[in-house]
Write a protein that binds this DNA or RNA. Structure first.
Lengths: 154, 154
DNA sequence: GTCAGATTGACAGCATACTGTCAATTAAGT
DNA sequence: ACTTAATTGACAGTATGCTGTCAATCTGAC
């Protein structure tokens, strides 16, 4: 078996593995939240509403488009899991807050998440996770700068 | 600065880094294909049609739902980049083939992809990419088995 | 050869995420 | 203060991917 030193091959393998794990993480999240009538996306927003925050801030934090988060937040508000409260410092951007119903759902999600962790994490080393995360963050920086260059050139 | 040995923290950081890089890879693909009127998703299918294949086979290979690939393939066919040819061995599953137009577009995509690689890959070590890919594949296995368990329990 | 089960594409519907545009509001520079 | 630029949410449209159902076809067990 030869070592894959070819850049194309290495990149392709890397990209495929990222796609795969990304999908599996999403699926794990769905497995945790779906039985409670929620989803990974809802969970992400719900979790951020623990402390009153604006939609735009949440979008920045999780790296999604503002309007994507807005959509989810509106659904959560319609379901009564969060509420929009007036923001003293910005009349446009109301603050997203957990309702008691929302807090209850979030607690149940957390419970299921802990169960999942208990049976999954015992097979994973936190050290290795952190090591890979470090590597990925380095690669992210390279990709980001490369994307910026690409945009400059049209 | 303390070492993050906490499992939750390690997992969260890991997941965030995977999401981020996943998004950046997609964006890089869009940057390569969009100027040619294509997309990452189209590219994935177009590339697989280099050798005549069925939609179901492509879906298996790239790990997407059959109908997701079907949708893309139909669009590509409508644009004349691929064509459906009769399959001697299965009257249902026609073979997806590149048209000359499709081959031309694919060649142009490849050209842009090479340019991108030249300015991006010089900052990345293939050894590191492979090392991370190996780690991710190991984690993927753990997550897959964990997902199976979860499904069994409902 | 027959029949039950698996595979496949067509059709339909849904969730997530993105982009673009517009008016209201806020922030910043002068 | 005034004017310009940036931010924000509402509204609308698009792309990607998923699921479920159905009829046609293929596969395999008998």
């Amino acid at each position: 078996m030869s070592l894959p030193v070819n850049l194309e091959d290495a990149w392709t393998r890397f990209a495929m593995s990222v796609f795969k794990v990304n999908g599996l993480i999403i699926r794990a999240g769905e497995g945790i939240t779906n039985p409670l009538g929620q989803s990974s996306a809802r969970w992400q927003v719900l979790g951020r509403a623990y402390e009153p925050t604006t939609v735009a801030k949440i979008a920045q934090d999780i790296g999604h488009a503002r309007q994507s988060v807005q959509r989810i937040a509106d659904v959560l508000a319609a379901e009564g899991l969060v509420s929009y409260e007036d923001n003293p410092t910005d009349r446009r951007a109301r603050l997203l807050e957990l309702t008691s119903d929302g807090a209850e759902v979030l607690a149940k999600i957390y419970q299921r998440q802990v169960e999942w962790s208990l049976r999954t994490m015992e097979q994973l080393s936190p050290t290795q996770l952190v090591r890979i995360a470090n590597g990925l963050e380095g690669i992210a920086q390279v990709l980001e700068s490369s994307l910026d260059e690409g945009e400059e050139r049209g």
